[in-house]
């Protein structure tokens, strides 16, 4: 099932939750909608599911107008952020719900329903919880039951709203891997919403980065990380050093210091220079685009993090390999391995 969204607009009062969104989701894809809270990603998901209606724009499934159908007819599996399991039903009945409410003409008989529910509970590896109630389950178990319930109706599309948002870090990591292998197994076109970049980059085939109701960039995880299209994406994904620079005839200036960097095609004026922390390489003093004094160094994990006060103002944090010896008080040169300059303050 392909999903196509064209020029979607949704306003809540004067706040534009979606401000002209275009998106095409390929068949069988696992797509992440990534953005800070308030970026419109959940609204987009709810409109695709039919739980909200846009003020303008189109949504189509396999070329068919989806907005002509209600949520009930769309056959979309939706997994809610807080699971929304039916609290008065057992796990078994929760999963069976979608099968039991089908019109009499197409409804399966009791034996077939039981077999299907069993199959789904096996799929999410929780068949031993069939008689429990949602309040007796852990967060991760609830999440998987919610997924089994959504899959019961054999959805054409699977939508997940912050699927791991309410779980602790360890469970979250396990479920991430599990979701990816599950998607590989069932191969339903799936979209999940997250504000966690690591989650999006690790699980999805493609990532859609959103901000303020607009799509900033669509690309593979490697693409959005290595070639951020906008200043927002560079700042939001990965840890970046951001420096305010002046562009003047292709020359880059930080305060009163001229930097030996290229700024081809960037309009003159105040701009922002982005460098990943680990892309700032330490050089002997006097060489490298930047020069600065090490303020202090913290050693942990695979890298050492150093705070450096640059000539020309601004203090930055860099990640350097541990074998490079840095001491507070040293004067060092710094050379960005790769960098991006985005026009505008």
């Amino acid at each position: 099932m392909t999903i196509e969204v064209r020029n979607l607009v949704k306003k809540f009062g004067s706040f534009a939750a979606l401000d002209g969104v275009d998106l095409k989701v390929n068949d069988g894809e696992l797509l992440a909608l990534l953005g800070p809270s308030g970026s419109g990603k959940t609204t987009l998901l709810r409109i695709i599911a039919g739980l909200d209606w846009p003020d303008a724009g189109e949504v189509s499934f396999n070329g068919e107008d989806a907005l002509a159908q209600g949520a009930r007819e769309r056959h979309v599996g939706f997994v809610f952020q807080h699971y929304a399991l039916f609290r008065h039903m057992s796990v078994f009945e929760n999963v069976a719900f979608g099968l039991r409410v089908q019109p009499r003409a197409v409804r399966k008989d009791e034996v077939a329903i039981r077999a299907r529910v069993k199959e789904l509970l096996d799929l999410v590896q929780l068949d031993w919880l069939a008689d429990r109630y949602p309040s007796q389950l852990s967060g991760g178990q609830r999440q998987r039951i919610a997924l089994a319930r959504a899959l019961a109706i054999e959805p054409r599309i699977l939508l997940l709203d912050e699927p791991f948002g309410a779980l602790d870090a360890k469970v979250r990591k396990e479920l991430r891997k599990w979701l990816r292998s599950l998607h590989h197994e069932i191969n339903v076109t799936s979209i999940f919403v997250t504000h966690d970049q690591e989650e999006a980059l690790e699980v999805a085939n493609r990532v859609v980065v959103m901000d303020k109701g607009r799509i900033e960039q669509i690309g593979s995880p490697a693409d959005v990380y290595d070639n951020p299209a906008t200043a927002f994406v560079h700042g939001f994904i990965g840890e970046s050093i951001v420096l305010p620079v002046e562009i003047d005839n292709g020359a880059v200036r930080l305060g009163d210091r001229l930097l030996n960097l290229m700024a081809d095609g960037i309009a003159p004026g105040t701009s922002k220079l982005f460098v990943r922390r680990h892309d700032m390489l330490v050089r002997p003093s006097g060489s490298g685009a930047f020069e600065g004094a090490v303020q202090h160094v913290r050693n942990f994990g695979p890298v050492q993090r150093a705070e450096v006060a640059l000539w020309g103002g601004e203090t930055i944090e860099i990640d350097a390999p541990r074998d490079k010896e840095l001491r507070a008080g040293d004067t060092i040169g710094l050379e960005p391995r790769r960098y991006r300059i985005f026009a505008g303050a």
């Binding site: 949520a71 809610f80 719900f97 409410v101 959504a150 109706i153």
Partner: peptide, 25 residues
């Protein structure tokens, strides 16, 4: 309203949603 939304997205009609989800709750 989340449980009601879940019921509708699973294909329940308005009446089914009311009698199977809202009322028992």
């Amino acid at each position: 309203t989340q449980e009601e939304e879940a019921a509708i997205s699973l294909g329940a009609s308005g009446l089914q949603t009311f009698f199977r989800v809202t009322l028992p709750n």
